[in-house]
Simulated scan of single mutants.
Amino acid sequence: MRNLIVSAALVATSLFGLSAQAAEPIQAGKQYVELSSPVPVSKPGKIEVVELFWYGCPHCYQFEPYINPWAEKLPEDVNFVRIPAMFGGVWNVHGQLFITLETMGVEHKVHTAVFEAIHKEGKKLATPEEMADFLAAQGVDKDAFLKTFNSFGVKGQMEKAKKLAMAYQITGVPVLVVNGKYRFDIGSAGGPTQALDVADQLIAKERAAN
Score class of each variant (00 low, 15 high):
148 T>F: 01
111 H>S: 12
113 A>W: 00
53 F>S: 14
86 M>T: 06
24 E>M: 08
101 L>M: 07
65 P>W: 01
8 A>V: 12
57 C>W: 01
38 P>Y: 07
111 H>V: 10
46 K>P: 02
125 L>A: 11
46 K>Y: 03
46 K>G: 06
67 I>G: 07
91 W>T: 07
132 A>W: 01
39 V>Q: 14
74 L>R: 05
33 V>L: 14
53 F>G: 08
87 F>H: 04
114 V>H: 12
68 N>P: 03
65 P>K: 04
131 M>L: 10
101 L>C: 08
77 D>G: 11
139 G>T: 04
162 K>G: 12
80 F>K: 09
96 Q>W: 02
64 E>H: 07
143 D>M: 09
134 F>Y: 10
124 K>D: 15
22 A>W: 00
7 S>Q: 12
172 G>R: 00
58 P>W: 03
60 C>A: 14
69 P>K: 15
29 G>R: 01
78 V>E: 02
41 V>W: 04
27 Q>A: 15
39 V>I: 13
71 A>K: 06
96 Q>K: 06
120 K>P: 03
184 F>R: 00
199 A>I: 01
141 D>L: 04
82 R>T: 08
10 L>T: 11
67 I>H: 14
151 S>E: 01
191 G>E: 01
185 D>W: 00
193 T>V: 03
174 P>N: 13
167 A>C: 07
138 Q>F: 09
69 P>C: 11
171 T>G: 11
157 Q>I: 14
32 Y>E: 03
53 F>N: 09
97 L>G: 13
150 N>S: 07
201 Q>P: 01
144 A>S: 09
123 K>D: 04
204 A>L: 10
35 L>E: 03
55 Y>W: 06
100 T>S: 13
126 A>F: 05
89 G>M: 15
196 L>P: 00
18 L>C: 15
142 K>P: 01
187 G>R: 01
7 S>D: 11
168 Y>I: 15
169 Q>M: 02
197 D>F: 01
179 N>M: 03
76 E>P: 02
153 G>V: 04
107 E>Q: 13
194 Q>W: 00
116 E>L: 14
118 I>C: 14
153 G>D: 05
145 F>I: 04
207 R>V: 14
111 H>G: 08
29 G>V: 02
101 L>G: 10
112 T>Y: 05
25 P>D: 05
65 P>G: 13
57 C>I: 04
57 C>G: 07
118 I>N: 10
193 T>N: 02
188 S>I: 00
41 V>C: 06
78 V>Q: 03
176 L>S: 12
200 D>F: 03
190 G>T: 00
26 I>V: 15
174 P>S: 09
11 V>K: 09
134 F>G: 15
50 V>R: 12
189 A>C: 07
113 A>K: 12
127 T>N: 11
26 I>P: 00
116 E>V: 06
165 A>P: 03
163 K>C: 11
49 V>T: 05
150 N>M: 07
92 N>H: 08
81 V>T: 15
171 T>D: 03
51 E>R: 10
161 A>Q: 14
98 F>Q: 13
180 G>T: 09
72 E>G: 14
108 H>L: 09
19 S>E: 09
161 A>G: 12
190 G>Y: 00
192 P>A: 15
144 A>C: 08
45 G>K: 10
80 F>V: 06
